[in-house]
Design a binder for these strands. Structure first.
Lengths: 206, 206
DNA sequence: TGTTATGGCTAATGACTGTTAGCCGAGGAG
DNA sequence: CTCCTCGGCTAACAGTCATTAGCCATAACA
């Protein structure tokens, strides 16, 4: 998997704007996920896209913003997926199922983002760290309110909505740790089965 | 929370053997958990016990072994707790409940170990990393076999024992991320409730 | 009282790293 | 044909850090 180094010292001005920048973001994501943020050097990221470390600064303003983009983007994507999922169903049971499916789907399809997002919170400087944590709270609250509503409607039966929401979120996040394409389950199968498990957790007779 | 620096340059030979070493291990654990392994310096660890960075080498052979001890010790403790828990019950349902309770108890009582154990796998050099990963597999297999047995005995009802074991383990591990003493639940209450949730996940009518 | 091991300390080593400065070739614009 | 911008490059800067070397005061012990 050797990437061709730019032998021509000059760049290619008009060719594919933002292409390198995107490649850098992808490489950074992969390296942050496999080696960790602090263990990944700018030279590593550069090598992954065929340039030297310092050249990265022609496309991205620094290492820290690469991490911030990943983590903020991940949380925004999750929150958006949750909103879309809950809007597409009427009963609380279906809403929870859809929300869990979206949650699991994201963690299976964007394993690296999820992995980095969960592991590198301490590597993120302020104020971005608090921004990410706030979004995390918002996301969790969405599930908790859903469960509380299900309980008050008599559809769910749990001792603690908070415990249930944590459990459901945590088991879905775990998918990012072991899922790989071509395994026992497809993403869709996985999402459906975790939907089942979540409904069992909240004691929903479906 | 200022720690008194040793003003006397000389040591105290006979006094409390291994005390400093233990304090260093505790401090390292706390710092690894809060800042991450790579972000924690030997000077940080030293400051936490009132000495300078280099003095740590009088008690411990290096930073990497501090991490290895934490991670190997964590997995050994989990495996031992699992063995003890499953030995203390007869029915599969009870065995699973006890195993989950032990799992949750460990993650609530040893949050820092669990946190580091889950986050710093990539920071661990070989061959210790593989050692830890092997122990993790062993631990997961214990839960999976238990669930498979429950299914074959007709006590449990799951589509995939692997999915169920991952789910149950992941939701228990999540406890380490948010639990704190004096919160809504005690460790015992938490363990019991997660036992309930796990039995729901495997469809056990208890 | 003299000796020695312990466990502090400072200084130094050697390596690594994010980022900046400044150079330069190529291709597009005029 | 000339000029300018883009996007490479190398060199340099300004740290940081794990670890080693070597010094020395204390306290236990003979």
């Amino acid at each position: 998997m050797k990437v061709e180094r730019q032998h021509r010292p000059g760049g290619v001005p008009g060719a594919l704007p933002g292409d390198r920048a995107a490649a850098i973001r992808v490489a950074a994501l992969r390296l942050f996920a496999t080696q960790g943020y602090r263990a990944t050097t700018m030279a590593d990221i550069g090598a992954a896209v065929g340039i030297r470390g310092p050249s990265i600064y022609k496309h991205v303003s620094g290492k820290q913003v690469l991490l911030a983009e990943i983590m903020l983007g991940t949380m925004d994507a999750l929150i958006a997926a949750h909103a879309e999922a809950t809007a597409s169903a009427v009963s609380v049971g279906d809403q929870l199922r859809r929300a869990v499916e979206a949650h699991v789907r994201y963690h299976a399809r964007h394993q690296l983002e999820a992995f980095v997002g969960n592991r590198e919170i301490a590597s993120l400087d302020q104020p971005d760290r608090d921004r990410v944590l706030r979004r995390r709270s918002t996301y969790e609250r969405g599930f908790r309110k859903l469960i509380e509503r299900g309980v008050s409607e008599g559809a769910f039966d749990v001792r603690s909505a908070r415990l249930a929401s944590y459990s459901i979120l945590d088991m879905g996040m775990g998918v990012a740790n072991w899922f790989h394409d071509g395994g026992e389950f497809s993403v869709d199968q996985l999402a459906y089965q975790y939907g089942d498990l979540a409904l069992r957790v909240v004691g929903c007779q479906a």
